[in-house]
């Protein structure tokens, strides 16, 4: 079984985000890039499927700022078998539609049985890549998934809904899955193992050079959201704050 994981390298939310001088996008010089957290779940789910049902895991991503190798080495250390990066004369800010088109073109050559990707990413301004991959590859899609089992060419999937409800689905391979959370928390890859792999691993490269259709969305302005209100911050040390909180609760007749 060919298991493919499509990943996105996106601006890190750990640091304060800054806007460019024109106020139309992020100042990409000021941000670090990290693996989309949901893609980390997708990688874990892919390795779990491989361990349970056999197969090989290929991880593929667009190398937006030429720093994807570390992410791919980590994926290999966690149990992926092959890593592929899409390269070219690229600039940060590549939209989801372009990501999906390039990834789909690469995946078409992989004879994939199941494609896993993060259900969403923080930079998905023009939508999530999972359903787009499904549209390009003419496969069914199911997202917000928290469990995947594969047997006899059928994937059993658990999809989250509001209110703690969970839908169980059976989908014939091949398909695309948008992973919300893997069945188990992502495993840890020791840094020594990642370093070892970095020395020997071969990352396949696919060159892109095109002006195909993108998001077709004009970004007019980007700024931190204007907050409509702010909490009344309670003054004093922990004890004073505790006293005040209890007083407020009592005022409302709740104690």
């Amino acid at each position: 079984m060919n298991i493919v994981v499509a990943i996105k390298h996106i601006p890190s939310l750990a640091d304060e985000l800054e806007v460019n001088d024109e106020g139309t996008n992020l100042d990409y010089d000021m941000v670090d890039f990290v693996l989309n957290e949901f893609d980390e779940q997708a990688i874990e789910q892919a390795v779990l499927v491989k361990e349970a049902s056999g197969g090989a895991v290929t991880v593929v991503g667009v190398d937006v700022i030429e720093e994807l190798d570390g992410v791919l080495h980590t994926a290999l250390a966690k149990g992926a078998d092959k890593a592929v990066k899409i390269v070219g004369d690229l600039e940060p800010g590549i939209d989801s539609h372009t990501h999906a088109r390039w990834l789909a073109d690469a995946i078409k050559e992989m004879d994939a049985d199941i494609i896993l990707t993060g259900v969403q990413a923080a930079d998905d301004l023009d939508g999530q890549i999972g359903p787009m991959l499904a549209a390009h590859l003419d496969m069914p899609y199911l997202g917000v998934v928290t469990g995947v089992e594969v047997a006899h060419r059928v994937a059993t999937l658990y999809k989250e809904y509001a209110g703690g409800m969970m839908g169980k689905y059976a989908v014939s391979l091949p398909l695309v899955v948008g992973v919300q959370a893997a069945t188990k928390p992502p495993r840890y890859a020791p840094i020594s193992k990642i370093r070892q792999i970095a020395k020997t691993a071969v990352i396949e490269e696919i060159e892109v050079d095109d002006d195909g259709p993108g998001a077709a969305v004009m970004l007019r302005k980007m700024s931190p959201p204007v907050s409509t209100g702010h909490a009344n911050m309670l003054p004093g040390d922990a004890e004073a704050v505790a006293e005040k909180i209890i007083a407020i609760i009592k005022e409302r007749g709740l104690l």
Partner: peptide
């Protein structure tokens, strides 16, 4: 939502219409 997110981006590619999310 769990339902809307499964359809919107798919339709965007199928029908070649731009999508704005969130």
């Amino acid at each position: 939502t769990s339902m809307g997110m499964d359809m919107a981006a798919w339709l965007s590619v199928k029908a070649e219409r731009p999508l704005i999310a969130y």
